[in-house]
Structure formats: structure tokens, C-alpha cells
């Protein structure tokens, strides 16, 4: 393969990785931005979306596309409902105190993880891709499904942005984010907004999981990686900043794929160095640098 083709391949892999990461991380960022809750169970909502997608796919006979389409709609709704319930039963009772909610969501993490193990078992659970075609690029063919994932993620992120900036629900969410006491003085049911936001955040993670599960099998321990990567993304982008989250997801996604795919071709003498592990180290280094030199993140606002 020529250098240009390898670059394009790395770019596409980076975009696919970044798009799913952006969706997951936007859920985490939304919850923190509006509720000031650091949701340590976010990765488990991702995992739950994936295993429920497998369960849905296994229940529905017929073409994989039909089962996948049902999973894409139903799984985020179920995960969102579970999250809303967790908000009302646990977080609300803690009055959304930052420290207490961290401990509570750690507890939620274990409940969801062990619940998935109990119900779905310890094995990796495959979900067939809804479409099976390849795009032919110069020098290589590329999964049509992965391109569909990129397009779907872009559309979903655009939809999220439109909801937040162009709808009444988004206006209510932004007002609640700015000042919840004053929001209540104007009739906004803050408890309902919080339950909705927590559900939406979890639902975004679940959508990302349903999109990724035909590429990466569902498993009850799969929540850790998206959680850690999402934290990296929101730290780099700025906690609560959706724009920053998307930019940081692109950065992390690109680093994650460019290093192991493209760099060994550019520097063949040092090819053995450019491993996926190095990509993870680089991402962690970026997080560390951001924390030291710009703790509010690239697009976050400095605390007053």
C-alpha cells in the first residue's frame, strides 16, 4: 500500500474510533456539565447497551439489519430508563453532593457489572453487523459499516447540539446548568431535568455501544475502557464542554489509530515502537499536560 492509502486508512480508523468515543464522552460531559455529577458508572451504561444489543439481536429473527435497528432504538431507551431510576432512587436522595455521588456511582458500577455477569454470563457476545459491504479506496477496501458508524455518530452529535441550542428542552437544560435555584424560581422542575439528563447521558453511551458492538463483542467487563477514555476526553476538552469533548475525542481517536497504523510506515526503522500501547501512553501524556498547564481543559472555563 502507498503512503497516501495508509494515511487514509489510519484516518478512517481514527474517525471511527473518535466518533464512538465522542458519543460516549458527550454523555459523560453532559451529566457533569448540567448536574455536576462525575458518573463513574458511565462505562457500565455503555456495557449495558452492548449486552442488551446482543440480547435484542438474539431475540429477533430475520435479517441482522432489522435486529440491529430495533436494538439501536430500544437499548438506549432501556439503559436511559435504568439511569433515570438510579437518579431518582440514589442521586436525588444524596442531593447531588459531588463526593457522595462519586461513591454512589462506584456502587452503581459494581451493581450493573455484576448484574450483567449474572444475567448474561462471562462470555463475549457477538452481534452481526447490519450491513456487509466494503468501500473500495485506492489500494484498500474499507468496511462500509464503519463508515456508517462515522456518519451515524456525526448525525447524532449534530442532533444533540440542535437539541441543546435550538429547543425548549435544551434551553431548560442550559438554564438549570447555570443556576438551579433560579431555574426553580421560574417553574423548572430541576429533579425532572436531572433525571432526564442522566438518562440522556447513559442513553448516549448505550447508542455508542450498540454502534460499536458489531465491531467489538459485548462483554460484562467492557465498560472500563470507554470510561477511562471518556474521562481522558472530557479532561482534555474541558468538563461540561460538548465542543471540547468532540475536539478531544477526535484528537484521542486519531492518536489511537495514527500511531500504530501510519507512523510505522513513516518511520520504518522505528516501526516496532509505534504500538497501540504507545498510543495509550501518548493519550495519557496529553491528559497529564492538560491537567498541569490548562486544568480547565482546552474549551473549559476556569473556575471563578
Amino acid at each position: 500500500m502507498q503512503l497516501g492509502s495508509i494515511f487514509l486508512l489510519a484516518l478512517l480508523e481514527g474517525l471511527a474510533s473518535a466518533s464512538v468515543l465522542a458519543l460516549t464522552a458527550c454523555g459523560l460531559s453532559l451529566v457533569f456539565g448540567i448536574m455536576r455529577v462525575v458518573n463513574v458508572a458511565h462505562g457500565e451504561f455503555f456495557m449495558l447497551g452492548a449486552v442488551l444489543a446482543w440480547f435484542t439481536a438474539s431475540l429477533i429473527p430475520g435479517p441482522p439489519a432489522l435486529a440491529f435497528a430495533v436494538a439501536l432504538v430500544v437499548c438506549p431507551l432501556i439503559v436511559g430508563a435504568i439511569a433515570a431510576l438510579a437518579d431518582m432512587l440514589v442521586l436525588k436522595r444524596l442531593n447531588y453532593e459531588p463526593e457522595a455521588t462519586i461513591v454512589a456511582t462506584i456502587g452503581l458500577l459494581y451493581i450493573l457489572q455484576q448484574g450483567a455477569l449474572t444475567v448474561f454470563g462471562p462470555n463475549a457476545l457477538p452481534v452481526p453487523a447490519p450491513v456487509d459491504f466494503r468501500f473500495q479506496f485506492p489500494g484498500f477496501g474499507y468496511s462500509g459499516y464503519k463508515i456508517a458508524v462515522i456518519v451515524a455518530a456525526v448525525l447524532l452529535l449534530l442532533g444533540l447540539w440542535l437539541i441543546l441550542t435550538r429547543t425548549r428542552i435544551g434551553l431548560v437544560m442550559r438554564a438549570t446548568q447555570i443556576d438551579r435555584a433560579t431555574a426553580r424560581a421560574f417553574g423548572i422542575n430541576v429533579d425532572r431535568v436531572y433525571a432526564g439528563v442522566f438518562a440522556m447521558g447513559a442513553g448516549l453511551a448505550a447508542i455508542a455501544a450498540v454502534l460499536i458492538v458489531p465491531i467489538q463483542q459485548a462483554h460484562y467487563l467492557m465498560g472500563a475502557d470507554p470510561l477511562l477514555l471518556s474521562f481522558s476526553v472530557v479532561i482534555i476538552g474541558g468538563l461540561g464542554s460538548l465542543r471540547g469533548t468532540v475536539v478531544a475525542a477526535l484528537l484521542i481517536g486519531m492518536v489511537d489509530q495514527m500511531i500504530p497504523i501510519f507512523m510505522p510506515v513513516v518511520f520504518p526503522a522505528y516501526g516496532a515502537w509505534f504500538t497501540p500501547t504507545l498510543a495509550k501512553i501518548m493519550a495519557t501524556l496529553v491528559v497529564a499536560l492538560v491537567l498541569v498547564f490548562r486544568p480547565q481543559g482546552l474549551f473549559g472555563k476556569r473556575a471563578a
Binding site: R168, L171, V172, R174, F186
Partner: peptide
């Protein structure tokens, strides 16, 4: 938007 919140 502030006025819209009041109207809502």
C-alpha cells in the same frame, strides 16, 4: 432566552 424562560 432569559425572557423565554420567564414566558415558559
Amino acid at each position: 432566552e432569559n425572557i423565554e424562560i420567564g414566558l415558559m
